[in-house]
């Protein structure tokens, strides 16, 4: 494996402070699985120093293109958003993706930027609904509509779809599903995990944690994983995850 200098295809704002970037890498497009991430160097200098881990939104194997969606959170993503052409240094695909389990009734449940990695999951499932929660502006809903049976959208201000939280919609229909895949803010995911647990629905979650190396060497992206005896230990979000079976994950209060 190695990092690759990839040609930038586009980098455009799709909602306020939210960007979609696509780059060309036949190797990464061929290898990538839904739920994996790439680790990007946003510029060539030493500031910002570290790479930025961003989950893969779209994989186009035929044209060798990988796309990501990111929200401007700090200096790294700010720098990234300014890139209009040229090349970008990418490591990936990294981590473990979502297990694609066929023959089941599935739902993807995403919150904000957490909706991004779920598109590839939905595209790879034959019987899937989508629950997409946003604060005020929505994006990529039409992409989910192409791959899903039903798409539920909520916004906190009610400007698009239902007013409120996406978990309220999921709760109404949870009994219809065998498997739920989720990614989003911790509070939302915790609620999704609780809803699934009380309805005996299998649930896979993608954890977000601050990362360093992205490949399992630096041990900074520690997340608590339950043991059978009720104890817990740390696993690495980057290498052991970012996707875990919800039963394993211990959310800090």
């Amino acid at each position: 494996m190695k990092n690759e200098i990839c040609e930038l295809i586009y980098n455009r704002e799709i909602a306020k402070s939210t960007f979609e970037m696509a780059f060309r890498s036949e190797n990464m497009a061929a290898a990538a699985l839904p739920g994996q991430f790439v680790h990007l160097k946003v510029n060539e200098g030493l500031y910002p120093l570290l790479r930025r881990p961003i989950s893969i939104h779209r994989i186009d194997k035929s044209s060798g293109v990988v796309a990501i969606i990111y929200h401007i959170m700090g200096q790294g993503t700010e720098e990234l958003s300014k890139k209009q052409s040229g090349y970008i240094d990418v490591m990936g695909p990294l981590g473990n993706g979502f297990p694609i389990i066929e023959g089941k009734k599935c739902a993807v449940v995403g919150g904000g930027i957490g909706t991004a990695p779920l598109l590839e999951v939905a595209k790879n499932l034959s019987d899937c609904d989508a629950y997409l929660g946003f604060r005020n502006c929505t994006y990529k809903v039409e992409e989910f509509e192409k791959s899903c049976n039903k798409v539920y959208v909520t916004t906190e201000d009610g400007s698009v779809g239902y007013k409120g939280y996406i978990t309220e919609q999921l709760e109404k229909y949870i009994s219809e599903y065998d498997i739920v895949y989720t990614c989003g803010p911790k509070v939302m995911m915790k609620k999704v995990v609780d809803i699934c647990a009380s309805n005996n629905v299998e649930c896979y979650i993608s954890i977000e944690e601050r990362m360093g190396c992205g490949i399992g060497a630096c041990l900074v992206c520690a997340c608590k994983i339950k043991e059978e005896n009720g104890d817990w230990h740390y696993k690495k979000a980057c290498k052991d995850g970012p996707v875990f079976n919800a039963k394993e994950v211990l959310f800090d209060a």
Partner: peptide, 23 residues
């Protein structure tokens, strides 16, 4: 050793802080 609680990393100008705690 399990090490310290997360977050264990913070990026700083041309550097980073870590508090892995010998996991």
């Amino acid at each position: 050793r399990e090490g310290n609680k997360a977050p264990r990393i913070a990026e700083t100008p041309a550097g980073m802080l870590n508090s892995v705690g010998l996991q």
